[in-house]
Each structure stands twice: as structure tokens, then as C-alpha cells.
Simulated scan of single mutants.
Amino acid sequence: MNEYFSFALLCLTSFFTLINPLGVMTIFLTMTSDLESTNRIRTARKSVFVAFITLVIFAITGQLLFKFFAISVDSLKVVGGVIFFLMGQDMLQARLVKPKLTDSEKKKYVNDISITPLAIPMICGPGAITNSIVLMESASSIGMIVILLCSIFVICYVTYLIFVNSSKIIHILGETGNNVLMRIMGLIVMVIAIEFLVSGLKPIIRDILKIS
């Protein structure tokens, strides 16, 4: 029983830390600032659902997929870093605040941002994907596998609740506060992007140059 409890605690804490729903929420706020409540909830629901399905798929078939396509987590980090950097640059220049969208454009906008970059790589990033694969490898029984999948669901649901209630924070911050928050988060996202790029490129370059 203690083994199951320890594994459950490890799953919950590691996924919460790697997904960081409170940190992702600030980006979600800036990207959905011009959407009404219905579209914001739809965006949150779709992004969290896609992230949950992606994590479950990688947890179950991660090793096979990586071997089949001959790709590595390092490559995923590099791609995620590029996406993060471009998004952070737009945030820094306030391009994501109050986008002027027509009714016909809003549906496409919601579909676009809910999958990328919110679901992937913001919620379901390289760290969370790697964590799901590693923990699945560590699961030595059916009970542990169930605990892992339930932990992914719990953290994704918590992320959804945080997203849905983020509109209250928008009203508290106001437009000026939201602009300031977005620029600060833009800098942070760009720093995260560099970290992703460096951590992804380092082992790739070492492998190319045959450095042990």
C-alpha cells in the first residue's frame, strides 16, 4: 500500500510541476483576452482534452513511437523551444492582446490556439511527455498503471478548472494589467525557450561531435 501511495504522490507532484497550470494560465489569459466566456471555456476544454489524450498516448506507446520514427525527446525540446521563442516574441510586442476577430474568425482562432501552443507544448510539453513515458516504464503492476493514468487525468482537470476561472483574474487585472502581465510572461517564455533549445541541442551536438 505504501508503494502505491508513494507512486501516486510522485505522479501527481511531478506532473503538476512539469505542466505548471498556474504558469500556463497567465499565457492562456493573454491569448483569450478578447474571447467571450463561452469561447474561452471551449478553448480551455479542448486544449486540456488534447493534452490529456496526448499524454496518455505517449505513456502507453511512447517508447514504440520514438523508436518507430527514430526521434528523441531532445528533438522535441528543440521544436518546443522554437515555438516558445516565437510566441514569447509576439507577447513581448503585445501582438496577442485584444486581437480584432470577427465572429467567423473566432472559431478558427479557438481551434488554432487550443491545440498549438496551449495543448502542445504549453500543457503537454517535452517534460510532461518524458515524465509520462518514464513513469510508465517504472509502473510494475496494473495498479500502478491505473494510478499513473488517473494522476494525468486529475492534473489535467485541475488545469481546466484554473483556466475556466481565469476570467475573474482578467477583470481584476484590467487591460493595462493584462498588457503588463503579457510582456513579463513574454520575457519568461523566451527564457524558457532558450533553456529548451540549449537542453535539446546539447546532447544532439555531443552526439554529432562524438563527445562523451
Rank of each mutant, 00 (worst) to 15 (best):
P117F: 01
V189N: 04
L76S: 00
L135F: 10
V180A: 12
R183Y: 07
S37I: 07
V78P: 05
F58W: 04
T102N: 09
I71C: 02
S138I: 03
M185A: 06
I184R: 07
T38S: 08
I172C: 10
I162D: 08
Q63T: 15
L148V: 05
I162H: 11
I211C: 02
F49S: 04
T26L: 15
E3H: 12
F85Q: 05
V146E: 07
L173M: 12
D207H: 15
V48N: 05
T43N: 08
A119V: 01
C156S: 14
L101R: 06
M182R: 13
L173R: 07
V158N: 01
T61F: 15
F163G: 03
T54H: 01
I123F: 15
V82M: 11
L64W: 13
N20G: 08
F15R: 09
M190P: 04
F69E: 01
M136N: 13
I147C: 00
I41H: 09
P121C: 01
I162W: 11
I205C: 12
A193L: 08
I184T: 12
S141Q: 05
Q63I: 10
Q63S: 14
A70L: 12
I211N: 03
T102W: 03
A193C: 10
P99I: 06
F16S: 12
N39L: 07
K107C: 02
M31V: 12
M25H: 09
V110I: 13
I129H: 00
S14W: 04
G80Y: 08
I155Q: 03
I57Q: 00
A8I: 07
F16L: 15
F84T: 02
S72H: 03
V82C: 08
P21N: 04
I147Y: 01
V146L: 12
E3P: 01
V48G: 02
G80H: 06
N20H: 13
C156R: 06
V154T: 10
V180F: 13
N2P: 06
K202M: 09
K210N: 13
F49Y: 05
L35W: 06
F7I: 13
A44T: 10
K67A: 12
V56G: 03
T32R: 04
L187T: 11
E137M: 09
G23M: 04
F58C: 00
A128Y: 08
K106H: 02
D103Y: 06
F69S: 01
Q89L: 10
R206T: 03
N131D: 03
T43H: 03
S33V: 09
M91R: 10
I152P: 06
S104M: 02
T130P: 02
T30G: 15
M185V: 09
I71F: 11
V73T: 11
F7P: 13
L35R: 06
A94C: 10
N111S: 15
L197Q: 00
T26V: 14
H171E: 13
S138N: 14
V97A: 07
A193F: 11
E195H: 07
L118C: 07
S37Q: 09
V73W: 03
L76M: 11
N20S: 14
I162G: 09
P21Y: 03
N2G: 14
M182C: 15
K98C: 07
A8G: 05
G23C: 03
G80A: 05
V198Y: 12
R206P: 00
I162S: 08
G125L: 05
K168S: 14
K98W: 05
L161I: 06
M31G: 04
F196Y: 11
